[in-house]
Nucleic acid binder design. Structure first.
Lengths: 197, 197
DNA sequence: GCCCATGCCTAAAGCCTTTAGGCAACCCTC
DNA sequence: GAGGGTTGCCTAAAGGCTTTAGGCATGGGC
């Protein structure tokens, strides 16, 4: 019998495609095996278990996303860069919903440390150089941007903004405008926290 | 043999507790049955299927969250209200991670329409009354707040901000300050979109 | 006190995961 | 080019979750 030529990479790739088709949660070792026309047990020499397969898909997705982000950021700065980066996340999520969901997979600290996750925060930091924030604030801003990008994309994917005016693209643009303004005026704010609670 | 007294409500409640213990994804009809010391098949007279159970947990969580939000908002306005509402989401997610995850469950449009999801957007809108935004912008702002709250809480829960300075509480406060400023100056921005792309 | 409805049970099929052990195909060496 | 070892996929099997079908007994109502 002809060998199927399974490798962790090919399985991961197939898993990623499957994720985009049926949703990341529905990715199953069995279904991947079926797609290679191979018995399920065969996959277990290439992948530790179901969780391992999913983690690999997550790592692949983070990598792809980081590559796109790096591309988008090249040669841009300021608001231009902000919009470009934001659109990378949003577009990726729309093109590859399963992979995007995979990118949210809970990796172990060790896996996370070795993942492209690092590149993502580095790129956000690079982006923020254009806004010139002092250090503690830069981290706050990184977290803010991460939250908005992730939160918006996630809600949009969940169907939160569909079929209700104004359309999502408009909100997205307006929100990015607002973030740009916010970042440009970040320091020019009420001197210190007069926060309650 | 003594009857266990199963009802959809008690099953949902048990499911919610289970979710907080083991994670929403891991909630299983079998495990809930085990907790009632009852055979699995018995649950199927009270709950349509696994998906139905999860949807009920989602609805319960949305309801609880909305109740808390309503409480927190009562008698507050402006930044005070903003912080109170934001903290409701964050605190709920930290106290009940499983339920919080459940609140993100993809409901059908019909279920969503009948859920407390509506109350959530209404409350955000109520909160924004304190900032007095004209209509299209109000919707944009609702979406922005939803994105930040959801995004931040989600990333924090995923462990994104743990073990790295500055601590998460500080970023959270700073981000809410920034949002307040942003909302107060929302209209006072660059007249019209000079956005590219 | 009887009777029916309801509630939980047994049984069973289907699908997924994971491990163990086996045979055959491939590659490398002689 | 043949032998031999390694690697790759297979069969077998156990265990878990889901879901449906059909049965018996409990418990409330008459």
């Amino acid at each position: 019998m002809v060998r199927a030529g399974l490798t962790p990479e090919r399985l991961t790739q197939a898993g990623a495609e499957l994720a985009d088709e049926v949703g990341f949660e529905e990715v199953t070792v069995s279904e991947v095996a079926r797609r290679f026309d191979v018995k399920v047990a065969s996959l277990y020499s290439h992948v530790k278990n179901s969780r391992d397969l999913k983690a690999r898909i997550a790592l692949l997705s983070l990598e792809e996303l980081a590559d796109r982000a790096a591309d988008a950021l090249a040669g841009r700065a300021g608001k231009d860069a902000l919009i470009a980066l934001a659109d990378v996340y949003r577009d990726y999520a729309r093109e590859h919903p399963g992979r995007y969901a995979a990118a949210q997979f809970r990796l172990t600290p060790a896996e996370a440390a070795a993942s492209a996750g690092i590149r993502h925060s580095q790129m956000t930091r690079a982006l923020l150089r254009g806004y010139d924030l002092p250090e503690p604030d830069q981290t706050h801003a990184v977290r803010l941007l991460g939250s908005v990008f992730h939160g918006y994309v996630d809600l949009e994917l969940a169907g939160g903004f569909s079929h209700s005016a104004p359309d999502s693209q408009e909100s997205w643009s307006r929100i990015l405008d607002a973030l740009d303004t916010l970042l440009r005026n970040w320091s020019a704010e009420p001197p210190e926290g007069d926060r309650e609670k």
